[in-house]
Design a protein around this nucleic acid. Structure first.
Lengths: 116, 116
DNA sequence: ACCTCCTATTGACAGTGGTCAATGCATCGA
DNA sequence: TCGATGCATTGACCACTGTCAATAGGAGGT
């Protein structure tokens, strides 16, 4: 009979908290890079549009007109969000479909969670 | 007899949510200004130090050494946090004591709250 | 192969932001 | 009143960032 392998579920996948204890420089830099991605109105609108999309996916071309920004600018912001892990892109034919990474967003949300 | 005036209590003091519905430009700008205040490692460390302070207050002079930044730089970041409503300062004698505005921080946290 | 369409990258520009030295402004004690 | 102390402001510098026009890359269609 094979040995039973037990994998410990990492319940604390979560990032450091701002409110729990003083952050060191590297923890703070890590978190700040996440909030930097959120610190732009265009990118927040991108996230909100993705969150509200019925299929959970939005084509790049469908961002341009609602955001009122040029196509290169939209592509620029999507790249920043992608590098921050907040969205992911999937090329299908000529189009690239972006979707929200809710886990990554929840990590940043948890970093602001009040401690009991 | 005077007319009865009914004031509706605003139960939703809270800011717009990123995940509920697409944000318009002004809502996004409002939220982005909040996250901009969080988008710096020095400021995140300021907030975490304030959150961990036993008395809930920290003197400006007590930030300088832990942060490893000059006094004008610390003052600069405190001003940004103050203008964002995240901290408040109270002058007592020669010293200015800063404290955390947890409600304002909770507002930003709520903006990232997953919708059911 | 060629053309068309969608997306990404480059380059340039103006605006913003973090940093510190120097200085100004209070407050307190002598 | 004077000097010392704590904090804020100014000015300057450099790095970063948002924006768009122009261009490149890639995938289909004819």
């Amino acid at each position: 009979m094979a040995k039973r392998v037990v994998t410990i579920e990492p319940t604390d996948r979560c990032c450091p908290s701002v409110l729990a204890s003083p952050l060191d420089a590297s923890q703070a830099a890590e978190l700040a890079s996440g909030f930097t991605a959120l610190a732009d109105p265009v990118r927040l609108r991108v996230l909100s549009i993705l969150a509200a999309a019925p299929e959970g996916e939005v084509c790049v071309c469908d961002f341009v007109e609602p955001l009122g920004k040029s196509q290169p600018t939209v592509s620029h912001h999507l790249k920043i969000l992608s590098e921050a892990g907040l969205v992911g892109g999937d090329r299908r034919g000529k189009w690239v479909w972006y979707s929200l990474n809710r886990e990554r967003l929840a990590d940043l949300q948890a970093a602001l969670q009040p401690v009991e």
